[in-house]
Design a protein around this nucleic acid. Structure first.
Lengths: 403, 403
DNA sequence: CCGATTTAAATCGGGATACAAATTAACTGG
DNA sequence: CCAGTTAATTTGTATCCCGATTTAAATCGG
């Protein structure tokens, strides 16, 4: 816990103002004051400094007259989209997705590399990331030297701050310092983050949780991820570790103990039909769940059962999460959603059965079929969040190696 | 998120100083400065104010000479034990335990009312609490008017801030405002808190986690409770809800879905032997697990199996908690520990099997056979924590109803 | 067209805070 | 009894927030 001094005070209020502008879009000083409970004096001082630093700009044009037509008109302030640029990337089993965004998180360019990352040596992955970043930056009409931060997200357990990957389904090795490798390769500050945290950030900034500072997100793809937003901050465990969901054991012990990942991951769902060559093909292309859905609707009862089993397990896991974190909302994202109601109907039912009565009204379930670009954009948002200078250690300062 | 102003700044630093004194015991100003990274000037100013408010005192006597014998001697500052008094209470199924403590949490008096709270109407419980508080306060040589806050802890889901009990195993009704009832009855500010949170506080202040700001606590008694300490603050869900563990579903859905409480609560363990009148008797007296242990050691295989099953389920649940919260330590407390290794051996083994490899080194399990007094003392610590004026909303201000 | 009105933003002055440097206090040691 | 040493306080400066006042930039109304 940090000691408070005037600098911290200013940092907090400055962040508050900047975040208010980001959330609201173009906004006048008076209104910032109303929303933040800061005095007009302070808002003026802080916005002057933000203008000075080029993080925000005045918007004269398109100046929609304020409702009240009298008096001195409000001067609208908005983020300066060109204050900085970042690259966000999502590393998944069979693809790498990049987006370049400006300071407000608008996607300027995106790029998908359809490669089986699974079995590649880490060095090669770093190569691919480097290439992807370079191309994506060029596609955005930018130069590498204009990129402030790169945020790479991938599934697994990741130590925030050091950027060490303790374990990940897409890396062959454990305890990889992806972070340092990429940072030194490109000479740009780099953040490595769990993909679940990235998409959690995306939902908070751009998606289904813009209005909420307390929610839980369940990411169902090749691996099962978990993100927890608590008081507007990503919740991290001790040492800044990201959380995991796939390792949750369903079952009371003994023989019926089974990991959630073995019930509800995409691999687990297709397990029975793995001999079908078409299915294997689709899985490699990331279209596995689309294929499964087709098969189910063509009458494949084994897959229907598998999907239902996965949905039920997820529903129970989500009920457990509600009991453990008491969030207002549980957001479900990920490619497995392509199964549609074959997954969701049993999920909802299991959730409803498993949720303790007093909590039944607390949390709503929201399904969001976010695409890959959104995930990568979430990684970008993680990077931007640090640029905004959040004064709470939740996200430590961007680690810059090299350079 | 609050806006920062000089007042908040001072509140933070003041709390920091007071907390440093509490944790360290008698300590000189210089050392406070070193530990908190505040300047000597600021420490002097804050301690002067604390002295002025009577929260701390100088210790001239017993003035152990500082190591270095030269120079002006240090003036040791310590909490003023008489700065305030609080009562902490633990409401359990078959007893109510009270402690009265001074400002530093020393227990001045304690009292156990061996009553079956289970089936009593709420009004009667409030009566009992009132009587208990009055007696305990008198036993401590205090007057009711000297008591600053009462903190009542009980199992269940409790909304911090409003003090509403959404559900509890020891109350017949749901949605009870115990809080207001007691506060108005005694005319003293009252806090209602989950018992798991209370014992979590106790471990942090007095017990096995004095050195740690990130840990998880599992309370195994008649009901199963969960406390999460995160960054030195009790983690609460949205709306300030306390967390629950007993509602965790073990099992993947369908027929083998079962609540942890139905596997590992004391009632679940003795379930098979409920017809034994001696056992029923012991359970009512809170000696159930001692009795079970005796029975196991006398050869009762059914109970041995039940205990092992409970242990295994708990071990898995704890592994899940480590995956979900990534804490440094998991502390286990509660009367079920009386089963000893009959419970713990399978617990440890299940935990070891279930914990994901990368996390295996992260969290250690600590067993703490805390007695009832410690739980009640934890409730007192919750009350004291608010008196110390923690500036972070985590624990809202003590709600005072009535007078 | 110009002054009154209205609202927004900037400026001024007061109060609180933290900190560094200088000063005072309270010892020990020879 | 004085020099040396360490602790604590005092002094002076910079920063920050805020309320009140002033300035700015519109509209309205005759």
């Amino acid at each position: 816990m940090k000691t408070a001094d005037p600098e911290l005070m200013r940092a907090i209020n400055r962040f508050l103002v900047l975040d208010t502008i980001r959330r609201h879009g173009a906004i006048a000083r008076v209104e910032i004051g109303e929303r933040t409970d800061l005095s007009a004096t302070t808002v003026s001082a802080i916005t002057a400094s933000l203008l000075d630093d080029g993080l925000i700009t005045v918007q004269h044009e398109g100046d929609i007259r304020s409702q009240t037509l009298r008096g001195r008109p409000r001067v609208m302030l908005a983020l300066n989209p060109e204050a900085a640029w970042v690259v966000g990337a999502k590393l998944a089993a069979n693809r790498i997705v990049f987006v370049a965004t400006n300071f407000q998180g608008d996607v300027l360019a995106n790029l998908t590399l359809p490669v089986r990352v699974d079995r590649l040596p880490t060095e090669v992955i770093v190569d691919l990331v480097e290439d992807g970043v370079r191309r994506c930056v060029r596609d955005a009409g930018l130069g590498l030297n204009q990129i402030n931060t790169i945020a790479l997200s991938l599934p697994g357990i990741i130590e925030h701050g050091t950027g060490k990957v303790l374990s990940s389904g897409v890396l062959r090795d454990a305890d990889v310092s992806l972070h340092a490798a990429i940072a030194s390769r490109l000479g740009i500050a780099t953040i490595v983050e769990s993909d679940a945290n990235a998409i959690t950030m995306a939902e908070h900034w751009f998606g289904q949780a813009r209005d909420l500072d307390d929610f839980v997100l369940v990411a169902i793809e090749e691996t099962l991820g978990l993100g927890v937003m608590h008081g507007g901050q990503l919740f991290r465990g001790a040492r800044g570790l990201s959380l995991t969901l796939g390792d949750m054991i369903m079952g009371a012990g003994g023989d019926n103990a089974i990991k959630l990942a073995d019930l509800a991951s995409e691999r687990a769902i297709v397990n029975g039909s793995h001999d079908d060559p078409g299915m294997a093909e689709a899985m490699q292309l990331g279209q596995g769940m689309v294929q499964v859905r087709r098969a189910i609707e063509a009458g494949d009862e084994a897959l229907r059962t598998a999907a239902a089993r996965a949905g039920a397990a997820l529903g129970i896991a989500m009920a457990n999460l509600v009991a453990l974190f008491a969030p207002h909302r549980v957001i479900v994202v990920g490619s497995t959603l392509a199964l549609g109601e074959h997954l969701l109907a049993p999920l909802r039912q299991a959730f409803a059965n498993a949720i303790p009565a007093p909590l039944a009204q607390l949390a709503e379930i929201v399904i969001d079929e976010a695409d890959d670009k959104t995930w990568a954009r979430g990684a970008a948002a993680v990077a931007l969040g640090e640029l905004y200078g959040s004064p709470w250690g939740t996200t430590g300062p961007a680690r810059r190696a090299a350079q």
